[in-house]
Design a binder for these strands. Structure first.
Length: 741
DNA sequence: GTGTACTCAAAATT
DNA sequence: CAATTTTGAGTACA
C-alpha cells in the first residue's frame, strides 16, 4: 500500500547488507539435559524450559483448509516456539545448585528424551485440536503482524509485515480475492522481505539508525536480542536520568526511554503470544514495567493483565497471556506454585474514588476464558527492591494455568474476581530462589554446605561465604585476602589526584565541580550509585576533595555492597555469585591483587591463572553505552571514545579478593572499568567491575577475558606466549568463541 | 482512521 | 515514613 514499496525494498536491502545474520534463521536447538549424577532425583531442564525445537516464526500449525498453506503466519508462538537455547544467557547455568535434592549445574548436552517429550507434549496438549479445541493465536491488531518469532530484535527490519490483505482473519473464512501470496514456506519469512514487493513496513519508520552500532554483531540468538534491547533501554534511561538530575528535574525517564525505544522500533518479540517468550528465561528480573513491554513479555504499560484474542476451533475468544502480581490488589502469593490473583477494576474510577463491583470484562473476561481454554499464562511476580525501598523488582516466574475462579467480597465490601493459578510442573525455580535466599538471610545456618562463612575474614564490609554443593573440594588454594590492589609503589608517592572544592557533596549540574569536569562534565554515577556510562577512565572524589565521604562520586572506593558467595562450579573450578539481585550499572568489586611488571608475567605467567590485563574490554561492554546515542546528543557523539588499553597487569595469585574467582564468559554479565580515587597515575587505575545487565540472585558473575574472536589472539593460539594461557571455553553461551585468554 | 477509558507505575509531594 | 497526588503509555474498544 502507498508508495512505500520502493523505499521499503531499499531499507530491507540495506539491512540485509548490513546485518546478514539477522536473516539467517536456521538453528537447531541444544536441548538441555539434566544429569542425574549421584542418582539425584528431579531431572529438570535448565532455565529455558519449553523451546525444544526451533519454530522460528511461531507458526502455529495452522491447518485451516481454506487458507493456502503458509499464508497465515502469526507471530504468536502458541506452539512450543521460542528460544532454542540451553544457556541463553551464556552465563553458566544460572540455575543454582543450592538445593541438594536437585541436579547441579549442567552443560548443554544431548537432548534428554524424557524432558523433551514431556515439554513438547505439554505444549501440544494445550494447543492441539481435541484437547480443548485447537488454539490458534490470531492477531489482535495490525501491530501484531510481524512474521517473526522475535528471534531477532527488531531494528525496523523485523517489523516487516505482510500486507493486511494477506492475513484474512479467521472469521472471514476465505479472502474475497487475490489473496494468495507468494510465500514460499517457513523459511520464507524473511525472503519475503527481500522480495520487497509484497511487503510493507508496519508503520512509518521515524528513524532507522542503521548507523548505530546497536545490532547484535555475531548472534541471532533470541537471548541476545532481548539482552541488547534491555541494555540499550537501560543505558538510555540512565542517561536521561543523569541529564534530568543535572537540571534538577526528575520525570519518568523510564517512560521517556521507552517511548524513544518504541519509536525507533527497538523492541524484541513484537506481537503477542501465548506461552514462552523467546530469549526470556524464568528468573529474569526487571526494574521497570516498560522493560517487559519492550521484550514482548507483558505489553500493557500499567495494567496487570495482558490478553489477546485467540482462535479456537469453535470461535475466537480473548484469553489471558501474562499477568503481573505486584501488590496492587489482594493477592495471595506466599506459595511458590500457587497464586491467587485478583481481577482488575472495581477500585474506583479515575475521577470517582468510589469502589465498585468488578465486572466480567477486559482482563477479567480473558482470565475467565483462559480457565476454560486451559492455555498457559506467563506470571510475573514482584518483590521489594532491597537496594531501593521505594522500588520494586519484577521476576518472571514462568508458566501457569488457571485452575479455578470465583467471586468474593473484598475489603471494601465489593465483589472481586479471584483466579487460582497453578504453576506448570517441570520448570526451573523462579520466585522460589528468592524465598530460599530469604530463609538463608534470616537463618544463615540454613544455607547448607558452607565451607567458610567468610573467606575475607572480616576484611570486607559483608561476609563472603564459601560454598561447595557440587563435589568434595574443600576450597581454593591458599591466598591472602586483600580488598584492593597493591601497587609497586605506595600511592602516596604516586602522582596525586586534583580534588574538587565542593562543600558537603558534589551535585549534578554544578559546572564548577572539578571532578565532574574531569569526567566529561557529568558525575559518573547517579543518585542510586549506579554507573551511567562506561568511560575510558573515571575520576572519583579523593582525599584532595573538599566533599564528604557521602559524596555520590565515591562509589567503588567504599568497597563491596552485595552479599556474595564463592561457590564450586560443575566444571570450571570456583565461581562467584550473589545472593542479592544486581541492577545494571551496579558496582560489583575491584580486581584486587598485586601490580606486577611485564617481565614477571613472562617469567612465570604460565603458572599464574590469576592475571588481569586491561587489554580487552569485550563486545558487550563496548556496546554498553549505546542507548544515549539514540538521543543524538552531540556531546556524546563527539566523545566517541575509542577503547584504550592500560599497561597495568595485576596478579591475584598470591593475594586477591572475590574477583579472582570470576570466570570467563563469551556472554558476560559483568565488565571492567578503570577508576582513579587514591592517586592520579592514569596508567595504573583501579580495575572495577560493574554489572552489564540486571542479574538475578544466584547467577554466576562472569566477564569477558578477551582473546576470543580477536584476530591477533587467534593467531597466537598455539604459538607464542599467549598460547600457554589460551583455554578452551566452557561458558556454554550460544555465541561462545571457543577459546579465551 | 481517531478518540477515550482503563490500568497491580513510578516519582514527587504532602 | 506512608498516604496521596501527578503525570503517564500502551492497549482495547467504541
Amino acid at each position: 500500500m502507498r508508495a512505500r514499496g520502493a523505499e521499503t525494498a531499499r531499507v530491507l536491502r540495506g539491512l540485509l547488507h548490513l546485518y546478514p545474520v539477522l536473516f539467517a534463521m536456521e538453528r537447531h536447538s541444544n536441548c538441555t539435559s539434566s544429569s542425574s549424577e549421584n542418582g539425584v532425583l528431579d531431572v529438570k531442564p535448565l532455565r529455558s524450559l519449553a523451546p525444544m525445537f526451533p519454530a522460528p516464526f511461531g507458526f502455529n500449525a495452522i491447518t485451516q483448509s481454506t487458507v493456502p498453506p503458509f499464508v497465515r503466519v502469526t507471530p504468536f508462538g502458541s506452539s512450543p516456539a521460542g528460544s532454542d537455547s540451553s544457556y541463553p544467557s551464556g552465563v553458566p547455568p544460572a540455575f543454582p545448585p543450592f538445593s541438594f535434592h536437585k541436579a547441579p549445574n549442567q552443560k548443554p548436552m544431548n537432548p534428554d528424551p524424557v524432558s523433551v517429550a514431556t515439554h513438547v507434549g505439554d505444549a501440544h496438549v494445550a494447543m492441539t485440536p481435541g484437547a480443548n479445541g485447537s488454539l490458534r493465536a490470531s492477531p489482535l491488531s495490525t501491530s501484531a503482524k510481524t512474521p517473526t518469532s522475535g528471534t531477532f530484535w527488531t531494528p525496523s527490519a523485523t517489523n516487516v509485515s505482510i500486507d493486511e490483505d494477506e492475513f484474512p482473519s479467521l472469521d472471514d473464512n476465505m479472502p474475497a480475492s487475490g489473496r494468495k501470496t507468494k510465500r514460499a514456506g517457513r523459511r520464507g519469512s524473511n525472503q519475503a522481505g527481500s522480495s520487497g514487493t509484497d511487503v510493507k513496513r508496519k508503520r512509518p519508520n521515524k528513524s532507522l539508525n542503521t548507523e548505530l552500532p546497536l545490532l547484535p554483531s555475531s548472534s541471532n540468538h533470541p537471548r541476545e536480542s532481548v539482552e541488547i534491547v534491555l541494555m540499550t533501554y537501560d543505558a538510555l534511561r540512565r542517561r536521561l536520568l543523569q541529564l534530568d538530575e543535572a537540571k534538577d528535574v526528575n520525570r519518568r525517564q523510564d517512560l521517556k526511554a521507552g517511548a524513544i525505544m518504541a519509536g525507533k522500533d527497538l523492541k524484541a518479540n513484537a506481537g503477542k503470544r501465548i506461552g514462552p517468550v523467546p530469549g526470556v528465561e524464568i528468573g529474569d528480573i526487571f526494574y521497570f514495567r516498560f522493560e517487559m513491554c519492550l521484550i514482548g513479555l507483558h505489553a500493557p504499560s500499567m495494567a496487570g493483565i495482558d490478553y489477546m484474542t485467540a482462535s479456537f476451533s469453535d470461535k475466537d475468544e480473548p484469553v489471558a497471556i501474562c499477568i503481573v502480581s505486584a501488590g496492587g490488589y489482594e493477592n495471595e502469593d506466599d506459595d511458590v506454585d500457587v497464586l491467587i490473583y485478583s481481577g482488575q477494576g472495581g477500585s474506583g474510577k479515575h475521577d470517582k474514588k468510589q469502589p465498585d463491583d468488578q465486572k466480567l470484562e477486559r482482563g477479567n473476561l480473558a482470565l475467565e476464558r483462559s480457565l476454560h481454554r486451559k492455555n498457559q499464562i506467563r506470571v510475573v511476580r514482584s518483590t521489594k527492591d532491597v537496594s531501593c525501598p521505594t522500588g520494586k523488582i519484577y521476576i518472571y516466574d514462568g508458566l501457569y494455568k488457571i485452575d479455578d475462579s470465583w467471586v468474593e467480597k473484598g475489603k471494601t465490601g465489593f465483589n472481586i474476581f479471584k483466579y487460582k493459578l497453578l504453576r506448570e510442573p517441570g520448570q526451573p525455580d523462579g520466585i522460589a530462589v528468592w524465598k530460599m535466599i530469604q530463609k538463608w538471610k534470616e537463618n544463615p545456618s540454613s544455607r547448607g554446605r558452607v565451607i567458610l562463612p567468610d573467606i575475607s575474614s572480616g576484611a570486607e564490609n559483608i561476609p563472603v561465604c564459601l560454598i561447595n554443593d557440587v563435589d568434595d573440594e574443600r576450597g581454593p588454594n591458599h591466598f591472602v585476602y586483600v580488598t584492593t590492589v597493591k601497587y609497586l609503589r605506595h600511592t602516596t608517592s604516586m602522582k596525586p589526584l586534583e580534588g574538587c572544592m565542593c562543600l558537603s557533596v558534589c551535585l549534578p549540574g554544578d559546572t564548577n565541580c572539578f571532578c565532574a569536569q574531569q569526567n566529561d562534565g557529568d558525575l559518573p554515577y547517579n543518585s542510586m550509585g549506579l554507573l551511567v556510562r562506561r568511560k575510558p577512565l573515571i575520576y572519583e572524589c579523593s582525599v584532595s576533595c573538599q566533599c564528604s565521604f557521602n559524596c555520590r562520586n565515591r562509589v567503588t572506593q567504599k568497597g563491596i555492597r552485595l552479599h556474595f558467595e564463592v561457590f564450586r562450579t560443575k566444571d570450571r573450578g570456583w565461581g562467584l555469585r550473589s545472593w542479592d539481585p544486581i541492577r545494571a550499572g551496579t558496582f560489583i568489586c575491584e580486581y584486587a591483587g598485586e601490580v606486577i611488571s611485564k617481565t614477571r608475567v613472562e617469567d612465570d605467567g604460565e603458572e599464574d591463572e590469576y592475571i588481569f590485563q586491561a587489554m580487552y574490554l569485550g563486545e558487550k561492554a563496548s556496546r554498553w553505552n549505546c542507548g544515549p546515542e539514540l538521543l543524538e546528543d552531540p556531546d556524546i557523539n563527539n566523545s566517541n571514545e575509542v577503547f584504550r588499553p592500560f599497561p597495568i597487569t595485576i596478579s591475584a595469585k598470591n593475594s586477591g579478593n572475590i574477583a579472582r574467582f570470576m570466570n570467563h564468559s563469551c556472554s558476560p554479565n559483568v565488565f571492567w572499568q578503570p577508576v582513579l580515587y587514591d592517586h592520579g597515575d592514569e596508567d595504573y587505575p583501579h580495575i572495577m567491575f560493574f554489572a552489564i545487565k540486571h542479574i538475578p540472585p544466584m547467577t554466576e558473575l562472569t566477564y569477558d577475558y578477551g582473546l576470543h574472536g580477536d584476530e591477533a589472539g587467534q593467531q597466537e593460539i598455539g604459538t607464542g606466549f599467549m598460547s600457554q594461557r589460551a583455554k578452551k571455553c566452557l561458558c556454554g553461551s550460544p555465541n561462545c568463541q571457543g577459546y579465551f585468554g
